[in-house]
Design a binder for these strands. Structure first.
Lengths: 351, 351
DNA sequence: CCCAATCAGCTAATCGTTTAAATTTTGGTT
DNA sequence: AACCAAAATTTAAACGATTAGCTGATTGGG
């Protein structure tokens, strides 16, 4: 079933059929109707492969994910998918599956940069996608990698370190300040922090937000109360143990963990020391993982609007393609995050 | 950069270049080398769109997911992706996002059947994928829907109710029996069951396994101890409350919930009644959700090998395409599940 | 009534591959 | 040196759309 069959059936040329399908040129109403009827009757769908060859556009967006099993990825893709549904674009998914070798040696990680480059090159030259959305967890410099990709690239969640790639990321600093304020407003004065990997951008931004809030409140952040974790649950436990052991006399009354996993690790440690959350020590996290609603007590945390990140990234990429729209020229957009207040912060009235 | 450029540069015809790329015909060694050199030098990659048009094969597998946010989906895609990496196939992802309207009225659900049909039709006629993998949660009869799709379809996780579609699903009954046996071996005699939605296939299979094990052990399943849940946490809580209230004297000593969410709901109820898990009542779940490692005590459960389901589905679909391999003709393959023994089952020595 | 402008519709070239069929080369036999 | 089958190579026709450019027909102003 090709355009030729439709043309013959409707008694017109293939050009005319093409014009009515794309309505790219005026066609007399009754002829148009005849064509439409034949199309409806036969259930004809134009062959996108042929169309792509001719127009050099595939209507396919490559989605290159660092790892689909990483917490944000599927949610971001959900957002992308929701936006795409109202367009003619479709998703070609490439999953780098980086978590498999995440904790490997440095040369492994370099090899992964090759992997990104290779995947991008395939999407660009091989699959001939119109644009790509890179769903990354780590802020990494992909500037070398995207050379030669003369198509729109937008990075979702993390940032790219390249000015040719637009990025859609999330509010980090301001919301961390808000979360810290929430704890301060509850009357806490001795506040500890368990950071993520200290050299990563999110860890630095969150720390900045926390520091700002503490300063603002006329308090100060005791550097002995800042412990470096690595985003994992076990490190939250370890950091909390240090905190518990180091100053028996002046325990912090609240600990701000930079993600939920570490917050839960910290809660384990607190419980292990026969103290109660939040009566003895308040705890907050970041991410709003589903577990944070399952632990006891339920964790107060921050929710990143991952779906909106995906939705907006998709919107941005299609607008860059059409050249029109609010994001068509944008370099960087930041999606607001929001506080999720649950049960791990207690009011504190001691001086 | 096209095959013509390569041909000119290497001083051969385009046909020869094509033959060395696909090595589909003998080419004299030194000529082949010349072509290879030019390809390497220029970084030429054949235009897959043109190739697809000519060969009527796209090397693209459509992955049609009921919802990428559903627990199994991303893990299954991870498996698909891992297998695909060693092939020349790529993934076109369509997400139906069914969870959004899952609890809506019946006509909504019918509308979703339209959605499946429409998506499948697009993949088939529009995107011209070579085959499709349907990643479904619900056993549904898609037999009407796949008519006219004359391409391999394999259903991953759920089953299709259609003999034209192969399905890769997981061990349900036997592992449920094994789990029940684990509880029985610990000395439990009064065993309660919290089922999933009673009309669904997994709920029925799991119940069958449990019944078999109980029978086998010379015990019997008291129908007053079988409560119908709906897979959600709240229903686990509600069922457990019923169990706790109904027979003060003869409480079950163990409850088998058909998934982790309901098991956790049951644990909430038990704790709420001032009883202890597992000392007073043992609990087991199914799925090995990540939360089951975070709750206290850690939940004993069953792990479905979702990655293997995806991997095998991908394998099956490519083998059906090539016509060779162990799954090329297979109708149905079942992936073994495994027990995850943690802390919610206690030894019981009372009669 | 004529001419130019506008409009509808058609013809045919084109996109970049693959591959059947035609052609040329190779090398072994006589 | 001539012949011939087999092997290597090339030519050119597809695949199914889009679209530039052409042809006639219609319209309307002078």
């Amino acid at each position: 079933m090709t355009i030729k069959d439709i043309a013959r059936e409707a008694g017109v040329s293939t050009a005319t059929v093409s014009y009515v399908i794309n309505d790219s040129k005026n066609v007399m109403p009754e002829k148009r109707q005849r064509v439409l009827d034949v199309i409806a009757k036969t259930g004809y769908q134009p062959n996108r492969v042929a169309k792509s060859l001719r127009t050099k556009k595939t209507s396919i967006i490559g989605v290159l994910a660092e790892d689909i099993l990483a917490f944000p990825t599927a949610r971001i893709i959900n957002g992308i998918s929701e936006y795409m549904e109202q367009t003619d674009y479709h998703i070609l998914l490439s999953d780098l599956r980086m978590m498999d070798s995440l904790f490997n040696r440095y040369d492994q990680i370099v090899h992964q940069k090759d992997k990104i480059s290779e995947a991008l090159s395939f999407l660009n030259f091989g699959a001939k996608v119109d644009a790509v959305i890179y769903v990354g967890m780590f802020d990494r410099d992909i500037s070398g990698v995207i050379t030669g990709v003369n198509k729109p690239i937008v990075v979702a969640y993390s940032t790219s370190g390249d000015e040719h790639a637009c990025s859609v990321t999330y509010e980090n600093e301001a919301i961390s300040a808000q979360l810290a304020n929430h704890v301060i407003d509850a009357g806490h004065k001795r506040i500890a922090v368990i950071t993520g990997l200290a050299h990563t951008a999110p860890a630095q931004m969150r720390l900045k937000g926390i520091q700002a809030a503490i300063q603002e409140a006329g308090l100060s952040l005791d550097s002995a109360l800042v412990k470096n974790g690595d985003w994992e649950r076990a490190s939250g436990y370890a950091c909390m143990m240090e905190l518990l052991e180091q100053e028996r006399g002046v325990l912090p009354t609240a600990v701000l963990a930079m993600n939920d996993l570490m917050a839960i690790g910290a809660m384990d440690a607190i419980r292990g020391a026969n103290l109660r959350v939040p009566e003895d020590i308040s705890v907050v996290g970041f991410d709003n993982r589903e577990v944070s609603d399952f632990v006891f007590p339920k964790l107060t945390t921050v929710e990143i609007d991952l779906k909106a990140i995906g939705f907006t990234a998709a919107q941005a990429v299609t607008q860059k393609l059409s050249g029109a729209g609010e994001y068509a020229e944008e370099r960087s957009v930041i999606i607001p995050s929001k506080l999720i207040l649950r049960d791990t912060v207690a009011q504190r009235s001691d001086t």
